[in-house]
């Protein structure tokens, strides 16, 4: 079910402001692609444009093409709601619905889509998703408890379970570990490795070691100056990127960070 994504000549605007300019790349199916770059370079905006979440901000629009499995995400009769259903997202800070139990959080997406969900099907989805998110053993005895009672790392894995419960084609992760401690971070990174066999994963990260550890391919975004649009500097296999990048700018950024 995992799908590849083709981006060509993508410009992203907020009103009149050009936030990201001229991005072209191919994100491979069943692999992990990382976006790195300094703050404000548009990597999160780029990620959000892949499931049209950036449209939450009024005035946002794009030029160019994003094709998933040969279909344009921005075609005239494409429903952003349907796009988000098939391209799931995990956010910087864990955000389980505060009034729902763990069980209901996992089912939130499925309940939107089918009116009647038999108890057996529901139980099945919950167990499968939580197992997939490496959370089942920790929470199976307290599924009825509120999701916010969990630790930060567990909450984030709950959000991942919630995202994969609707069996999306692609999973987008926007700095999923930035609010977590190192142990929870490593749990999530392990999970990303496992999920890769079923999903196309795109992850934005601030942490370059993390990009090096989890991703197969990496895109480096930068901007020329504050107020200028962000652009894609280099897109390459992660190994090559961190050992022998094509662009001097990439080398400078990576080596700068590594000291």
């Amino acid at each position: 079910m995992a799908k590849s994504i083709d981006v060509s000549d993508l410009n992203i605007y907020y009103g009149d402001f050009l936030a990201v300019e001229g991005v072209s790349m191919t994100i491979k199916a069943r692999s992990v692609t990382a976006f790195i770059g300094p703050s404000g370079c548009g990597k999160s905006t780029m990620l959000r444009s892949l499931n049209r979440m950036h449209e939450v901000i009024p005035g946002a629009r794009v030029e160019g093409k994003v094709m998933v499995d040969g279909q344009s995400l921005y075609g005239p009769d494409v429903d952003p709601v349907a796009v988000r259903r098939s391209i799931g997202m995990v956010f910087q800070r864990p955000n389980p619905f505060p009034t729902m139990s763990i069980y209901d959080n996992v089912l939130a997406g499925s309940r939107l889509n089918s009116r009647k969900l038999s108890k057996a099907d529901a139980d099945d989805i919950v167990e499968r998703s939580l197992t997939h998110a490496n959370l089942w053993n920790e929470v199976k005895d307290r599924l009825g408890k509120p999701g916010q009672g969990l630790s930060g790392g567990q909450q984030q894995r709950l959000c991942i379970a919630r995202a994969i419960a609707v069996e999306p084609e692609v999973l987008l992760m926007d700095e999923p570990c930035s609010a977590l401690d190192p142990i929870s971070t490593s749990a999530i990174e392990d999970l990303i490795h496992e999920l890769k066999s079923d999903y196309t994963i795109v992850i934005v990260t601030h942490n370059m070691q993390q990009a090096a550890r989890v991703s197969d391919e990496t895109g480096f975004f930068n901007l020329k100056a504050a107020g200028q649009p962000g652009h894609l500097v280099e897109f390459n296999a992660t190994k090559k990127m961190f050992t022998n990048p094509d662009e001097p700018a990439t080398e400078a950024y990576i080596s700068g960070r590594f000291g």
Partner: peptide, 12 residues
């Protein structure tokens, strides 16, 4: 699970 992506459906 369908193997093709159903991004667009009939819309007004």
């Amino acid at each position: 699970m369908s193997s093709t992506v159903a991004l667009s459906h009939a819309k007004l």
